[in-house]
Amino acid sequence: MSWATNYALENIAERGDISADLISDNVIVLKADNKPDVMAYISDAHSIEYNSAGAMAASHPEIDFVCGYRKNCIWHGDAITYLKSQSIGWGSFGTLTSALLDGDANLAEHKVFRFAARAIRQMGGITFEREYDRVIKVTNNYGKNKRIAFAEDYDPTADVVRKIWEKFGPVDVICNINPNGRPTSGAHSAAEELGTKILKLGETMSVISKR
């Protein structure tokens, strides 16, 4: 059992609304009153790629959810696509516990990025490709392509902008998806220096739609 699975069990034990049992290795079953049980694989990986996602699913075909326990765990797009094709939910520990209580663990996706990704995906006249949990490519009806990174920080700084660029490469837009957030002046300056923009979700959707 990894440290992540141990922490997950400890955190659940401190709650009164849900419970969990260790099944084997890093697989646990979560329970809540009047909700379907959820079998979850708890991963301590820094990133979850296609091969690792496939290995988790193959080792325990009955799992409902794969949890990336580390706060900054990065999910690769092909891993997300694979898990969704197998009706396996994916995301953070907070996503897992919320999905248990909502009764939709098999369909759940990372709660931090879910709203923004869904809003863009449901726009008319675009194609949507997920490179990572927080990086997407979209093409509109006019053939215009945009590579967009999500920044969940409350007030993104210049350092946030540069780290996104260093980790994921050039993007056309950095989208601040925190509804109450406001990018700092330093973030705007850093984005301009890099030849990109940092925008809110509504502004990002307007950019996507342009000719």
Rank of each mutant, 00 (worst) to 15 (best):
Lys35Met: 10
Pro36Val: 07
Pro36Ile: 08
Val38Trp: 08
Val38Pro: 08
Val38Asp: 07
Met39Gly: 11
Met39Ile: 14
Met39Arg: 13
Ala40Val: 05
Ala40Thr: 03
Tyr41Ile: 00
Ile42Gly: 00
Ile42Lys: 05
Ile42Ala: 01
Ile42His: 00
Asp44His: 02
Asp44Cys: 06
Asp44Trp: 03
Ala45Arg: 12
Ala45Gln: 06
Ala45Leu: 07
His46Asn: 15
Glu49Phe: 10
Glu49Leu: 11
Tyr50Phe: 12
Tyr50Ser: 07
Asn51Val: 06
Ala53Glu: 08
Gly54Pro: 12
Gly54Lys: 14
Ala55Ile: 08
Ala55Gly: 14
Ala55Pro: 07
Ala55Lys: 15
Met56Ile: 11
Met56Cys: 01
Met56Phe: 06
Ala57Tyr: 10
Ala57Met: 12
Ala57Ile: 12
Ala58Phe: 10
Ala58Ser: 10
His60Ser: 11
His60Val: 09
Pro61Asp: 01
Pro61Ala: 03
Glu62Val: 01
Glu62Asn: 02
Ile63Cys: 05
Ile63Val: 02
Asp64Trp: 14
Asp64Leu: 08
Val66Ala: 01
Gly68Ala: 00
Gly68Trp: 00
Gly68Val: 02
Asn72Lys: 12
Cys73Trp: 09
Ile74Cys: 07
Ile74Ser: 06
Ile74Arg: 09
Trp75Pro: 03
His76Thr: 14
His76Asn: 13
His76Ser: 15
Asp78Arg: 10
Thr81Ser: 13
Thr81His: 11
Thr81Glu: 14
Tyr82Asn: 05
Tyr82Thr: 04
Leu83Gly: 00
Leu83Arg: 01
Leu83Pro: 00
Leu83Thr: 03
Gln86His: 09
Ile88Tyr: 06
Gly89Glu: 00
Gly89Pro: 02
Trp90Ala: 04
Gly91Val: 00
Ser92Leu: 04
Phe93Glu: 00
Thr95Leu: 02
Leu96Gly: 02
Leu96Phe: 01
Leu96Asn: 00
Leu96Lys: 02
Ser98Ile: 10
Ser98Gln: 15
Ser98Pro: 05
Ala99Pro: 13
Ala99Leu: 06
Ala99Glu: 10
Leu100Arg: 01
Leu100Tyr: 00
Leu101Ala: 03
Leu101Thr: 11
Asp102Gln: 14
Asp102Arg: 15
Asp102Phe: 13
Asp104Met: 14
Asp104Arg: 15
Asp104Phe: 12
Asp104Ala: 12
Asp104Trp: 06
Asn106Met: 05
Asn106Phe: 09
Asn106Asp: 11
Asn106Leu: 10
Leu107Ser: 13
Ala108Ser: 09
His110Phe: 15
Lys111Tyr: 14
Phe113His: 12
Phe115Gln: 14
Ala116Ser: 05
Ala117Arg: 13
Ala117Asp: 10
Arg118Met: 14
Ala119Phe: 12
Ala119Tyr: 11
Ile120Val: 14
Arg121Gln: 12
Met123Lys: 05
Gly124Trp: 04
Ile126Cys: 04
Ile126Lys: 09
Ile126Gln: 09
Thr127Asp: 06
Glu129Gly: 08
Glu129His: 14
Arg130Gln: 15
Glu131His: 11
Tyr132Val: 05
Tyr132Cys: 03
Tyr132Ile: 06
Arg134His: 12
Val135Leu: 04
Ile136Tyr: 08
Asn140Pro: 04
Asn141Arg: 14
Asn141Ala: 15
Tyr142Ala: 06
Tyr142Ser: 05
Tyr142Val: 09
Tyr142Ile: 03
Gly143Thr: 02
Lys144Phe: 11
Asn145Ala: 15
Asn145Cys: 10
